[in-house]
Design a binder for these strands. Structure first.
Length: 269
DNA sequence: ATATCCACCTGGCGGC
DNA sequence: TGCCGCCAGGTGGATA
């Protein structure tokens, strides 16, 4: 479920419920996520929440002495619920708020994580990350320079979070299709023009998905806001073997870096 | 440094 | 129905 747009929409959704509230305590039912939930987080007591933000696919809950980092992995999601809501399967962690509500992390596959970053420190997992895709820091020049250094397929470069964060498998497929670039093209072979189109389509696709998610996933305090998502907008992802929406040719499906990759032989070069 | 592959975990689906 | 293999939105880490 979570690519960058879902994380951003989650961030926007939970922020009004968390910001300015007291984080009274943290209830951990399953400590073993991708890494064990750190002691510092387990021990939190009556900490005012100063802000809620996002970096890459991490949600940041900012406190006075540091920051709780949440990563949703492949199957995680967060919800704001009344405090007395019974916990169900895979409801691993609750952040109990002074408002009478709680923020609940549910993660079936447990690839997600809860981490701690002390005030003034940069968590090692965050310190190596590339620019945010929706900022000016991610631009044609940067992508082109990164591509010059790489012999691997452009799709892999696009999904490398040292190059740019937040471009997962769905949106890599989509953006490459819209930019008319074959996913398997060696990154080195991209022209400045190719990079310009690609940067533009990455930004456009992510922004559009956020806008859609924002309309379907508005209320995080309800039991479920499971989105109609962005699914109806997908042009290639999940459509291998089906006709290209643009030219009608049969879409190809291959594996690239062990990830499913779909493209149109005639629309992408 | 870079590229490749594996691992982590649960559940849903198609095929037999 | 039941069992089996395969696949899934991520990404750190081991290995060559």
């Amino acid at each position: 479920m979570p690519e960058l747009p879902e994380v951003e929409v989650s961030c926007l959704g939970i922020r009004p419920h968390l910001q300015g509230q007291l984080l009274q305590r943290v209830v951990v039912r399953q400590r073993q996520l991708r890494w064990p939930v750190p002691d510092e987080v387990m021990a939190l007591k009556d900490e005012p929440i100063q802000a809620v933000s996002r970096r890459a696919k991490y949600l940041l809950i900012e406190l006075a002495d540091g920051c709780v980092l949440l990563h949703l992995g492949m199957s995680g999601h967060v919800k704001v619920l009344p405090r007395d809501t019974p916990a169900g399967k895979h409801d691993h962690v609750d952040f109990v708020l002074g408002s009478g509500q709680l923020l609940r992390l549910n993660d079936t596959r447990r690839f997600g994580a809860v981490l701690w970053q002390g005030a003034g420190e940069a968590h090692v997992l965050l310190s190596q990350l590339g620019p945010e895709p929706l900022t000016e820091a991610f631009n044609t020049e940067l992508l082109w320079q990164q591509c010059q250094k790489r012999s691997s397929a452009i799709k892999l470069v696009l999904m490398d979070n040292k190059v740019v964060v937040g471009v997962g498998n769905i949106y890599a497929n989509e953006a490459l299709f819209k930019a008319g670039i074959l996913p398997s093209r060696p990154a080195k072979s991209l022209s400045v023009d190719d990079c310009e189109r690609l940067v533009q389509e990455v930004k456009h696709t992510l922004a559009q998905a956020i806008a859609q998610g924002g309309t379907t996933l508005r209320d995080f305090s309800q039991s479920d806001g499971k989105p109609g998502y962005f699914k109806q907008e997908l042009l290639v992802y999940g459509r291998g073997g089906l006709p290209c929406m643009r030219c009608g040719a049969q879409l190809e499906e291959i594996r690239l870096g062990q990830r499913s990759t779909v493209f149109c032989q005639s629309c992408q070069r």
